[in-house]
């Protein structure tokens, strides 16, 4: 039985097996290559997406549970936003492979805390590994996007 969901606001139907990983459906069926595979075991967060507004690792989600779900990938985020500009300006992206997941983690964080403290930012990103930045520039970008000082 096909699974029907909404991906980045558009209806999508997948006929992959219900135990297929959402990650593979997004990348291979929807050609949404912004969702990356870094480890395949839910450790790195490179495959993070929002499901019904919640940050999740798409490598750990069986397609069968996505019936009627609202899924947001990096491609579904606004092209120009305070967050996007801050990420570029503050140097929050280096190699960029963790960046889509980080953008989604930051989006989820800001939805919950409009003005997050440094501790909240740290906690909100703790499921997304970055090997390039040491996270400092990412904190700065999120703080700036929230309207605060980038000098966190």
């Amino acid at each position: 039985m096909p699974t029907t969901m909404r991906i980045n606001g558009k209806a999508f139907q997948s006929s992959s097996a219900p135990n297929a990983r959402l990650l593979d459906v997004l990348r291979n069926e929807c050609d949404l290559k912004g969702t990356k595979e870094g480890c395949g075991e839910g450790e790195c967060g490179a495959c993070a997406v929002l499901v019904n507004g919640k940050l999740v690792n798409s490598c750990l989600i069986p397609l069968g549970q996505m019936e009627q779900a609202e899924i947001t990938t990096v491609e579904g985020l606004p092209e120009d936003s305070a967050l996007a500009r801050a990420f570029v300006q503050c140097g929050a992206t280096q190699c960029g492979i963790c960046t889509p997941g980080m953008m989604l983690a930051a989006t989820a964080l800001l939805a919950e805390h409009a003005n997050p403290t440094l501790e909240e930012i740290r906690w909100g990103l703790s499921g997304n590994l970055c090997r390039c930045t040491g996270y400092g520039r990412i904190y700065a970008a999120i703080a700036q996007a929230a309207g605060g000082s980038a000098d966190v």
Partner: peptide, 25 residues
Amino acid sequence: GGTDLMVESHLAPERHPEFWLDISG
């Protein structure tokens, strides 16, 4: 939630069960 089982089924696909019962609904 699948946070353990999906890891297992990815890293050891040969241990894929024949029948899944999804209780998340």
